[in-house]
C-alpha cells in the first residue's frame, strides 16, 4: 500500500520549501550593498554605461516588481540570462550539470558501499579490531577539511611517484580517463560521507540487534547471515537513508570545493567563476539550482523511507 495522501503532502511541503528558499536567494542577491551595476563595471564606469546596465539587469525597477517578475519566470523554468554572455542561465548550468552529478553519484556510492558494511560489521562484532579502528577513523573523516584532503591527494602522488591524474575528459568521450580523475576527486567527498554513514550504521545496528525480533530470529535457528541481512539491515536502513538525505547538503557544498581543486568543469566551478567576474544573475541561478536539487533529493529519499517503513506515515 502506498500512502498517496502522505506523498501529496510531502510534495506540497517540498514545493513550499523550494519557494521560500529560492525567494531567500533572490533577496540575498538584492541586498548587495551599493549599486550592483557599479560593482560589475568597476570604478571607471561612465554614468551612461551604468544606467544602461541597470536597465538591462532590470535593477532600475523596485524590488517588489522585480521579485514578482523573477518568480513568474522561475516557475516557468526561466532563471534569466548571464549578465555578460546573455546566455540563458538554465542552459549554462545544464551544460555543467553532468560533472557535478557524476561527482555526487560516485561520492554517495563510495559512502554507502564502504560505510554501511563497515558500520554493520563493527556493530555485530563490538570490540573487534575493525570496531577499534572505525571510531577514530570516522571522527577523523569528519574532521579533515575536504580542501586539504583533496590537495594531499593531488600532492602526494605527484611528489612521491611523479604521477598526476589526466586532464578532465567527459565521461561519454573517454570513460577511463574520466574516471582516473573523477574517482580520486569523488573519494575526497566520499571519505567524509563514509565516516558519517559508518557511524550512523554502527549506532542503529547496535540498537537493532538488541531488539526482541532479532533474538526470536536467532532462536528460530536462522543463520547469522539471514538474520543480519533479512532482519537487521532492513530496519537499520531507514536512519541511514535519513542521514544520506541530510548529508546531501554537505555533499553539494563539497562538490564546489573539489571541482576547484581538481579543475573540473562543473556547477561549482561555474559559480566561483561567476563570483569572480561578478556575474550575479548566474550566482543566484546556481543557488536556486542547488536548492532545487537538494529539495528534490530529500523528497525522493523521504518517500522512499515511507515505502520502507509504514510507521513513519502515521507518526
Amino acid at each position: 500500500m502506498v500512502a498517496w495522501d502522505y506523498i501529496a503532502k510531502r510534495l506540497l511541503f517540498a514545493f513550499a520549501t523550494f519557494l521560500i528558499a529560492s525567494s531567500a536567494a533572490f533577496f540575498i542577491m538584492s541586498i548587495i550593498p551599493g549599486d550592483i551595476a557599479y560593482r560589475m563595471l568597476g570604478d571607471f564606469a561612465t554614468p551612461k554605461a551604468v544606467a544602461e546596465l541597470r536597465q538591462e539587469l532590470g535593477v532600475d525597477q523596485p524590488v517588489a516588481i522585480r521579485y514578482v517578475e523573477w518568480l513568474g519566470n522561475l516557475l516557468r523554468g526561466d532563471l534569466g540570462g548571464s549578465a555578460y554572455s546573455q546566455e540563458p542561465i538554465v542552459a549554462l548550468l545544464s551544460r555543467k550539470l553532468d560533472v557535478t552529478l557524476e561527482l555526487a553519484f560516485l561520492a554517495t556510492m563510495m559512502g554507502v558501499v564502504f560505510g554501511v558494511p563497515a558500520g554493520m560489521l563493527s556493530a555485530i562484532r563490538p570490540g573487534s579490531w575493525l570496531d577499534a579502528f572505525l571510531r577514530p577513523a570516522s571522527i577523523l573523516g569528519l574532521a579533515a577539511p575536504s580542501f586539504w584532503v583533496g590537495l594531499l591527494l593531488l600532492l602526494l602522488p605527484s611528489t612521491l611517484w611523479n604521477y598526476a591524474p589526466p586532464r578532465f575528459e567527459p565521461l561519454l568521450g573517454s570513460p577511463l580517463r574520466n574516471l582516473q580523475l573523477m574517482v580520486p576527486a569523488s573519494a575526497v567527498i566520499g571519505f567524509a560521507f563514509m565516516a558519517s554513514i559508518s557511524r550512523v550504521s554502527r549506532t542503529t545496528m547496535l540498537e537493532v540487534v538488541r531488539e526482541d525480533y532479532i533474538r526470536t530470529a536467532f532462536a528460530k535457528g536462522l543463520s547469522e547471515r539471514t538474520v543480519v541481512f533479512r532482519h537487521a539491515l532492513r530496519n537499520a536502513l531507514i536512519p541511514i537513508l535519513t542521514l544520506v538525505s541530510l548529508q546531501f547538503a554537505a555533499l553539494l557544498g563539497g562538490t564546489v570545493i573539489v571541482e576547484q581543486i581538481f579543475s573540473l568543469p562543473g556547477l561549482g566551478q561555474q559559480a566561483i567563476a561567476a563570483i569572480n567576474t561578478r556575474d550575479y544573475p548566474v550566482v543566484q541561478g546556481f543557488v536556486v539550482f542547488m536548492v532545487l536539487v537538494y529539495v528534490t533529493v530529500n523528497l525522493v529519499l523521504d518517500v522512499a523511507t515511507t515505502v520502507l517503513d509504514p510507521r513513519i506515515r502515521f507518526a
Binding site: A24, A250, G253, V283, V287, V291
Partner: peptide, 24 residues
Amino acid sequence: VMLLDAMMAFPGLILAIALVTALG
C-alpha cells in the same frame, strides 16, 4: 518550523557563498 526547514534546505556552504558574495 516551516521557516527553519526552509533555511535548512540551503546547503550550508552554498548559502554562505551566496551571502558572502552579496555582502562582501
